[in-house]
Simulated assay, not measured.
Amino acid sequence: MTSLDDIRPAAQPAVRPPLLANRSVAMVHEWFGATGGSENVFLAIADLVPHARRIVLWADEDVEVERLGLHESWLARTPLRRSKALALPLMPLAWRTVGDEKYDVVISSSHAFAHTVRLGPPESTRHLSYIHSPARYVWSPDFDGRGSGALLSGPRRVLQAVDVRMSRHVHAYAANSREVQKRIQRFWKRDAAVIHPPVDVDFFGGTDVRSAAPRDYLLGVGRWIPYKNFDLMIEVAAEAGLPLTIAGSGPEEARLRRAAADAGVPVTFEVRPTRERLRELYAGARALLFPAHEDFGIIPVEAQACGTPVIGVNSGGLLETVVDGETGFLVGSMRPADHAAAVRRVGELSAARIREHAGSFSTQRFAARMAEWIAYETR
Rank of each mutant, 00 (worst) to 15 (best):
H293V: 15
D231S: 06
E294T: 06
G307K: 01
I225T: 15
P155I: 12
S333E: 02
R255W: 04
K84D: 09
R67Y: 04
V194Q: 04
G347D: 13
N22I: 00
G69P: 07
L43H: 03
D104P: 11
D100F: 09
R190E: 08
T2K: 07
I195L: 14
E377C: 13
F203T: 06
G147S: 04
G359F: 03
P266R: 08
H29Q: 10
I374K: 05
Q304V: 00
H171T: 05
F361Y: 12
R275C: 04
R168C: 09
I298K: 06
F187Q: 11
S167Q: 00
A161R: 13
N40I: 09
F143V: 14
M27R: 07
F203D: 04
L48C: 09
M233E: 03
A161N: 10
P92T: 12
H71A: 14
E372N: 07
A26P: 08
M233P: 00
A135F: 06
A305M: 03
V310N: 00
A337W: 02
C306D: 08
H115A: 08
L151Q: 12
R146Q: 07
E61G: 10
I354K: 09
V41T: 14
A367Y: 04
P50S: 11
G359L: 01
L278N: 01
V301R: 02
S315G: 03
V180Y: 05
H51N: 07
Q304P: 02
R335L: 13
A351H: 07
Q181R: 15
Q12G: 08
D338I: 10
A87T: 12
A375P: 00
H293K: 13
L151I: 13
P214M: 00
Y217T: 06
L20M: 11
E270G: 01
D6N: 14
V170E: 10
R215H: 06
A212R: 14
G307C: 02
E276W: 08
E348T: 10
G325N: 13
H357T: 07
R286E: 05
D295V: 02
D5F: 07
V28T: 15
A342G: 12
P141F: 12
G206V: 03
V331W: 02
V106S: 13
I311A: 03
A52S: 14
P92Q: 08
D5R: 15
A287R: 08
D262Q: 11
P18Y: 00
A367M: 02
H51L: 08
A292C: 15
I374D: 09
E280N: 12
G37H: 08
R272A: 13
T116A: 14
D6R: 15
S362G: 07
S3C: 05
D6F: 00
T268V: 13
P50N: 08
H29G: 12
L57C: 13
A212L: 14
F187P: 05
T378D: 12
G332M: 06
M370V: 00
A46M: 08
D60Y: 03
G149W: 01
V221N: 13
A213E: 07
V25I: 09
M1Y: 04
G297T: 01
L319R: 09
D60C: 01
L256Q: 12
S109M: 10
I225H: 02
R353Q: 11
A303T: 08
A44N: 04
E280Q: 15
G149R: 11
S129I: 06
P309H: 08
G316Y: 10
P17D: 11
R186G: 10
F230E: 01
A238I: 12
P291F: 06
M334Q: 11
H71V: 15
R183P: 09
I311P: 07
F204M: 05
F366C: 03
P121F: 07
